[in-house]
Computed example of a mutant assay.
Amino acid sequence: MNLTELQARARRIKLLLTDCDGVLTDNGVYYSERGEEMKRFSIRDGMGVERLRAVGVDTGIMTGETSGSVQRRADKLRITELHLGIKDKPARLHEIMARTGLTAEEIAFIGDDTNDVEILKLVGLAACPGDATRFARAVADFHCETAGGHGCFREVAEFIIASR
Rank of each mutant, 00 (worst) to 15 (best):
M1F: 13
L6V: 00
R9S: 11
R9I: 05
A10V: 08
L16D: 03
L16P: 01
D19P: 09
D21T: 07
V23W: 02
Y31M: 15
E33W: 07
R34F: 11
M38N: 10
S42N: 09
S42A: 11
I43W: 04
E50K: 13
R51Q: 14
V55N: 04
S67H: 01
S69Y: 05
S69C: 09
D75Q: 15
K76C: 09
R78C: 11
R78T: 13
T80Q: 14
T80I: 09
E81L: 10
L84I: 06
D88W: 10
D88G: 08
D88Y: 10
K89Q: 11
L93S: 06
I96F: 05
I96W: 02
M97C: 09
M97S: 02
T100H: 10
T100A: 09
G101T: 10
A104D: 07
E105Q: 14
D112C: 07
D113W: 06
T114Y: 14
V117N: 07
V123P: 00
V123D: 00
V123M: 02
A126V: 06
P129A: 12
G130H: 01
G130M: 02
D131Q: 08
A132P: 01
A140E: 01
C144K: 02
H150Q: 15
H150T: 12
G151V: 01
V156W: 02
A162E: 13
S163A: 15
R164F: 10
